[in-house]
């Protein structure tokens, strides 16, 4: 995304304004700090968490599982999307179940996964994989259905094999949708991991949230939420850069 100087400045200005309000508004309105801790309260708490709550390793653990869950879930989603996209029969057979699973609230599976796999990394990974899987699958499937028939006919006229048509026409045609699906999935991955850690875990930022909540330590919860957001933001940004690289051939809107 191309950002001009003026929009960057405006964004930063807005950030400064929000931070100032955060720092001075709650005390001015007599809101106690266990309800809304101020910016400095949170920074102080951040340091305490760094020293006594293994903030670094908890953050890295969450980041690692987010990326892992995202990678596995979107890989599976893309593979199934392409397979179903090539077989009208199986797509028709499976589509009601896919729809049902897509509607089912995936985070609600977390307690079940804990019952099945215990208090380890498996449940949160599974929730994340499940939650990431569908937007990628659905985007790919949708794109496979709308590949230009004339392009496929052109490839057929040039004697390309079924596999050749997939790699040279279908795969690149669907790439913009795949990338869009991955971007959506990246934001959902953070939710999946967080829910997993909230419900059954003793590591990660999600765990720190439930731990902090139990101790009425609002600053700790704030900090964990901020760090989770940062993880999601970084993942999203990386994907956006990859997308810009991969889809360089799309005309850019002129300003």
């Amino acid at each position: 995304m191309v950002r001009s100087r003026s929009t960057t400045l405006a964004s930063l200005g807005l950030l400064a304004l929000v931070l100032l309000a955060w720092q001075y508004l709650p005390p001015a309105l007599d809101v106690p700090k266990y309800i809304i801790p101020t910016l400095t309260d949170c920074l102080v708490e951040m340091k305490r968490m760094w020293l006594y709550e293994k903030l670094m390793s908890n953050t890295l653990s969450t980041a690692l599982y987010t990326v892992l869950g995202f990678a596995v879930g979107s890989l599976l989603g893309a593979i199934l999307g392409y397979l179903l996209g090539m077989s009208v029969f199986w797509e028709k057979v499976l589509s009601p179940y896919i729809l049902a699973l897509q509607i089912a609230p995936k985070v609600a599976f977390a307690p079940l996964f804990i019952m099945w796999f215990g208090y380890n990394a498996m449940p949160k990974m599974l929730v994340t994989v499940l939650i990431v899987f569908f937007p990628v699958l659905v985007n790919v499937l949708q794109a496979m259905r709308t590949v230009d028939r004339d392009l496929i006919n052109l490839a057929r006229a040039y004697n390309l094999s079924r596999l050749g048509i997939f790699w040279k026409i279908e795969m690149p045609s669907t790439l913009p949708n795949l990338m869009a699906g991955l971007r959506i999935a990246s934001t959902l991955a953070v939710i999946g991991i967080t829910v997993g850690e909230l419900i059954g875990g003793n590591t990660g930022l999600g765990y720190l949230i439930s731990y902090g909540g139990g101790q009425a330590n609002a600053a700790m919860v704030f900090n964990a939420i901020i760090l989770l957001t940062v993880i999601g933001f970084l993942l999203y940004t990386v994907l956006q850069h990859i997308e810009e690289r991969v889809l360089h051939y799309l005309p850019k809107a002129q300003h």
Binding site: D150, L151, Y158
Partner: peptide
């Protein structure tokens, strides 16, 4: 056809080569 059916992800030269690749 009326549509040029060029592959947008390929450069022009590589588009022109397209039909030769399966030969």
């Amino acid at each position: 056809l009326q549509k040029d059916l060029l592959l947008p992800w390929r450069s022009i030269i590589s588009n022109i080569e397209f039909g030769l690749e399966s030969r």
